[in-house]
Design a protein around this nucleic acid. Sequence first.
DNA 1: CGGGGTCGTGCAATCGATTACCTGAACGGG
DNA 2: CCCGTTCAGGTAATCGATTGCACGACCCCG
Lengths: 334, 334
Amino acid sequence: MGRVTIRDVAERAQVSTATVSRALSGAKPVSPAVVDQVRRAADELGYAGNGIASALRRSRTDTVGMVVPSIANPFFTGLVEHVEHALQDVGRQLFLCSSRSDPELEAQRLRSLVARQVDGIIISPVHGSLSTTAVRWAADELPLVQVDRYVTGVDSDWVGVDDDAALELVMEHLADRGVRSAAFVSSQLTNSSTELRGAGFRRHAARLGIAVRERDVLLGEYSIEWGRQAALALLAAGPRPDAVVCADDLIALGMLQACAAAGVDVPRDLLVTGFDDIPFAALSHPPLTTVRQPQAEIAAEAVRLLSRVLGAQEAPPARVALRPSLTVRSSTSR
Amino acid sequence: MGRVTIRDVAERAQVSTATVSRALSGAKPVSPAVVDQVRRAADELGYAGNGIASALRRSRTDTVGMVVPSIANPFFTGLVEHVEHALQDVGRQLFLCSSRSDPELEAQRLRSLVARQVDGIIISPVHGSLSTTAVRWAADELPLVQVDRYVTGVDSDWVGVDDDAALELVMEHLADRGVRSAAFVSSQLTNSSTELRGAGFRRHAARLGIAVRERDVLLGEYSIEWGRQAALALLAAGPRPDAVVCADDLIALGMLQACAAAGVDVPRDLLVTGFDDIPFAALSHPPLTTVRQPQAEIAAEAVRLLSRVLGAQEAPPARVALRPSLTVRSSTSR
DNA sequence: CGGGGTCGTGCAATCGATTACCTGAACGGG
DNA sequence: CCCGTTCAGGTAATCGATTGCACGACCCCG
């Protein structure tokens, strides 16, 4: 297990370490015969190189870090998958961290990524303001792109979905279905995208003449469990609204389950919508009408923006809001 | 963005770099006054350290790599979350890679992790034999623990669930429900756990007098989509078995959806079981009876085994098969 | 045949932190 | 008051790969 180094290879191939390095990386021309000799020596010794040493010298690791609030949420894992895919095309690896929706942990992850000298960071920050300090610091240290959510007060690229447009789609769809009153179930409005969804909900409800009672706006967290609890609270509290707009699919799925358990028929008695269009949204009973996020595009754009900065091209921070679309399923069709 | 190094801190604090290093790491005693001075200097300069340089010198990174076949599958993401949790307690960070069920990509990830000098690797190998070479090589280079699945011919620790016992639970449960014939829908039997599940299915079916027709054993991949397709194939092909045993929950959920669409009532017309007990298994229609994997325990044990090896304690490779349990829901209750 | 250019290779500095070894001061006991 | 011990802190080697610079061989053209 004693690691084999470039010196060992050099010795065996009867050349200098410089030549070995050049032969293997192809950075500078080396005569074919020598390349062959070196390759053989490296193979015979099982030379694997030392990425750490290489990273130290070149001060780049060909690695980007990604920090997401949760890896239990299929929306984020989908995003991660696409990012990983996109990165592979530009020859980089992904270093994934979960901040578990904790700004403290998030700051720690960021510090760790910076210390590990990743070439850049893609982050979906936990909190609109509590995350600011750490994100700003990281953005000062190296290229950083925010996805899905962003914190205020940091000049960095951002790419996500147009949340207001998304809620416009949802609310107009509901209005078309004859909805006159609606509830909104969400996590706390402590990050940009959630906040924008809440604002969009209210704005478009007002515009379309859909009534919103204050007690029908329920804020908890992005989880199935919260969806269940919110459903119970909603059903227990007097007259039902015509529809429930959920800020993500996990909440909506929990809501659907609790409704079924309580004998409330969706969509006959109540319409329900979600957000993200995770794979499981098609499997619920009834299948969920939800906003489809263009995950692949978001990921590709994030990687593109990061590469741009990595290529040292100075440019004003970009804010890219992609158009969402609506996937209509049975949870809103009578 | 010019990084601040230990020399800068040393200069500002009027001490040597050695002292800075010791003051910040606490490796050797440094007078409180100097520690304070150094701390202040480091703070003022925003010193973040260089993990790469440190790693090179100490030849450890306090990082472990994890390679899973898919990060779209909630079973693996659940595992990853628990592993990350457990690692945090021992002061290490997780470097997550997805092999996307491709042995080639998996080998590449392993090479990359070794080059990055992670301290150890936790892997759920893609393929029982195609993964062997890469896994063996990696296991030679550094401590390695296999989880869930294992490859043949590598002496490494493994921790997972007792698949035979799991299928015993499933089949006995089905027998109790009066099932006389069953189908098995799975991915290809090209990895250890899937293979063991298939074998367990047959063994316990035979033992309990449950009939299994060859054409009712359908092998595809671990995905919702394959579950759907298998359902169609199964329903199209003459007389239905009494039950369908699925090798994971994704397949089972796809199966349930396709059954509902085809007007087959589960559990009245057909019983369906899954494997893993992912969060979404409780949300389907009907809720899914499935084998619960003790994810937290698997993760904790994997980390424990890895720490054992990292602590240089030589020991024979351990194979830890944890007991699964059965979560009974409506998909098998008449 | 000589001068300028190209090309392959080696030497040694370098990246930034850690640490083995050394130095000098302070201190305590005989 | 002297010598051995202790301890803080400095000097410089080290981890392994990359790369600027230099050197020698060879080629081409005038």
